[in-house]
């Protein structure tokens, strides 16, 4: 790993002042679990690291009005164990506990989890792919067992985060700080960008911006939620596919539903067709299966990832049935 300059900014404003106008020159370090690996593998070589874990605005979980404010540098373990999260947004706790291992959850932060770079092995082996500024996606005609079946192209990475699908399902927003104290709030479904929107990046953060906190509305009263993650191992894997599902039942009928999938598309993928299929229905084997089928409508598998279609279909079905 190349060496870098390092000094702790006293305030958020100082932190943004250390950032530049160019991606990659300066990097924000919170848990470091993804960034340091990228630096060791020479995928990133920032000249300066800006530590943010100590910044008050970026720490901890607070209840504000009808929602939660979660500092982006809050370790995942604190999200998992936080009572307010468990009560007001249990879906997030369920997803956060599926990240990595206990040690990774002790180190990694929620902001880092949603901002992590792709796990595609071509990207990680430093192939000159779109993500590295090149002009090809090597997975498209390569070893693509773990790549996107939805929204793929020109890059076929999948979004690796577990908490992102949950946060999108919960309707969370990102509070982003820019230089000179400027701030903006971006709903998470607009935070992540597809390769068609920006083939090099996975989100809208500019080089001089910091993700400060996540604003998470309380889950609707009476709603039920689950996060189901399919992996090769029982743990310590990125998802083959994952499903964050939240439903509200009125008289046994689905009145409100959110279904967001991870591991199948370059962004957390909101399965609108599956939501439409199940809305107004009772949760039965038949209706859940129909929603599963709708979830993968339009899927365009590559040569080696066709299995993700039935797998995702089954996972959506099971997630919904578990909420009946």
């Amino acid at each position: 790993m190349e060496n870098f300059s390092y000094s702790r900014p006293a305030t958020l404003r100082d932190a943004t002042a250390q950032l530049g106008k160019e991606h990659g020159r300066v990097a924000i370090i919170a848990g470091g679990t993804d960034l340091l690996g990228e630096m060791k593998d020479e995928l990133a070589a920032p000249a300066r690291l800006v530590p943010v874990r100590h910044l008050r605005e970026m720490q901890g979980v607070r209840t504000v009005g009808a929602g939660l404010r979660i500092g982006a540098a809050t370790p995942l373990v604190d999200v998992v164990e936080n009572r307010a999260v468990q009560e007001q947004a249990p879906l997030l706790a369920m997803a956060a506990v599926k990240v990595g291992t206990p040690a990774i959850r002790n180190m990694g932060t929620i902001g880092g989890n949603i901002c992590q770079r792709p796990r595609c092995w071509y990207y990680r082996n430093n192939y000159p792919c779109f993500k590295h500024g090149g002009s090809a996606c090597f997975s498209a005609l390569g070893e693509n067992d773990f790549h996107a079946i939805l929204e793929g192209g020109p890059s076929f990475i999948v979004h690796p985060s577990d908490t992102a699908p949950a946060l999108v399902a919960l309707g969370a927003s990102a509070r982003i700080a820019g230089p000179g104290g400027r701030e903006r709030i971006v709903p998470l479904d607009a935070f992540f960008v597809t390769p068609r929107q920006d083939v090099r990046r996975e989100n809208v953060l500019q080089p001089d911006e910091i993700l400060v906190e996540l604003q998470v509305p309380n889950a609707p009263a009476g709603s039920r939620a689950t996060y189901v993650k399919e992996m090769v191992r029982e743990t310590w894997n990125f998802a083959l596919c994952s499903v964050a599902a939240m439903v509200t039942l009125s008289n046994g009928v689905v009145s409100d539903v959110r279904i967001v999938m991870g591991g199948v598309a370059p962004v957390p993928y909101r399965a609108l067709k599956a939501e439409a299929a199940i809305r107004g229905q009772r949760l039965t084997e038949t209706t859940a299966a129909a929603a599963g089928a709708a979830a993968v409508e339009g899927a365009r598998p590559l040569a080696k990832n066709g299995y993700k279609v039935p797998l995702t279909q089954a996972t959506v079905k099971r997630a919904l049935l578990s909420l009946a």
Binding site: W121, Y122, E143, V232, R233, W236, N237
Partner: peptide, 16 residues
Amino acid sequence: TLNANFLDLMPPTMMD
């Protein structure tokens, strides 16, 4: 070799 690391080779943990 595309997967010369443990995250991609996935040796068993105590959960497996």
